[in-house]
């Protein structure tokens, strides 16, 4: 029905009704009134009457239309206000979600640290108790010798007791030194980092995790591997990678650590014969929060942190893995340019 627009229809209707009115009313007046003067007077009345009727009609018509419009405008305005409020509320909600997420992230980073710390403390306690046992042994022996002259016929044993004490002290102090390096708070990247020392320290810290049927073999390059970097962060890198290798072995297996001194870079390859990583997961292992461990067992941040630290050192890390066969992690760092 809406073939013609409203304004055309109303104009046509007005013309038709107006025309019909003029024609019909004129005809009627001609029939009813014969006197010319009276006729023209009545025609004036008729005109007034017409104008009045159309004015009233127009008034209501326009009013109705304008009301509709005004109502719509008001509704629109209300809707706009409502929308603005809604957007504001949603923005606030989103902001609070983002804030919450940031807090969770900080908490997770913290729990990752605490998880590593747990492994670390158990390892360190054991590693320190062992040399303390040496010191205790030599103390007891030397005390006995001092009080009862127990070993006077055997000076070699006395020498061994003294030697054991020295070894115990050296070993404890090496562990404490390793710990200090791991927990270093410095954020600079210009420490002299000895890769072999870092690997040895990380192994020491993880020693308590290395179960009896796990064999760790080292194939270190004959030359020292020195790079510039952050010594504490690099400890974290190898602590994480070696920790993963150890955890990947369910009952028995081997871990090999091979280091190579190349012309322009150093290469560290850590291979385990553990459970391996599926192709699908391999792509995601450095994603933050990706973990295959049960909820609460792992934060999924270890390798993500490792990856970031290596990138900060302009290094590179690559993973190769076969499910059921094991995983190889290769880490590469550029050698510092020597000024001679």
């Amino acid at each position: 029905m809406k073939l013609h627009r409203f304004e055309y229809r109303i104009t046509v209707l007005y013309l038709l009704i107006g025309g019909f009115w003029i024609l019909a009313s004129d005809k009627l007046l001609y029939i009813l009134i014969k006197d010319g003067n009276t006729l023209s007077q009545f025609q004036t009345y008729k005109g007034w009457f017409y104008v009045l009727i159309t004015a009233v009609f127009l008034f209501f018509f326009i009013k109705k239309h304008l009301n509709k419009r005004r109502k719509l405008e008001n509704e629109l305005k209300e809707f706009q206000v409502h929308l603005e409020k809604k957007v504001k509320r949603r923005t606030e909600e989103l902001e609070s979600v983002i804030k919450q997420q940031k807090e969770t992230q900080v908490q997770l980073l913290h729990s990752e640290k605490m998880a590593s710390l747990g492994i670390l403390t158990a390892g360190v306690a054991h590693e320190i108790n062992n040399p303390l046992n040496f010191i205790m042994g030599s103390y007891i022996g030397l005390l006995r010798h001092y009080q009862d002259n127990s070993f006077s016929d055997n000076p070699e044993q006395v020498r061994q007791l003294i030697e054991a004490m020295k070894i115990g002290i050296d070993r404890s102090s090496a562990i404490v030194q390793g710990l200090n390096q791991l927990s270093g708070e410095s954020d600079t990247y210009d420490d002299q980092c000895d890769i072999h020392e870092i690997l040895e320290n990380s192994l020491t810290m993880l020693n308590s995790q290395i179960r009896p049927h796990i064999t760790v073999s080292k194939d270190f390059s004959a030359s020292e591997l020195l790079i510039k970097g952050n010594v504490a962060h690099l400890h974290q890198v190898f602590f994480n990678i070696l920790g993963n290798a150890i955890h990947s072995i369910e009952s028995e297996g081997d871990i090999t650590i091979k280091t190579e001194d190349k012309k322009s870079h150093v290469l560290i390859v850590i291979t385990d014969t553990g459970v391996g990583i599926s192709k699908e997961n391999l792509k995601k292992i450095t994603d933050p929060f990706f973990t295959t461990k049960a909820p609460g067992k792992g934060t999924g941040l270890g390798l993500s942190i490792t990856y970031n630290i290596i990138k900060e050192h302009n290094g590179n890390i690559e993973f190769e893995s076969q499910e059921g066969k094991g995983t190889t992690v290769s880490v590469m760092f550029e050698k510092p340019v020597k000024y001679e």
């Binding site: 062992n130 046992n133 040496f134 042994g137 030599s138 007891i140 022996g141 006995r144 127990s150 070993f151 044993q157 061994q160 007791l161 054991a164 070894i167 115990g168």
Partner: peptide, 15 residues
């Protein structure tokens, strides 16, 4: 497995 522990144990407990 630690030789020093073994050595110390021998010295001290052999008495």
């Amino acid at each position: 497995d630690e030789e020093i522990n073994v050595m110390l144990f021998e010295i001290n407990f052999s008495v």
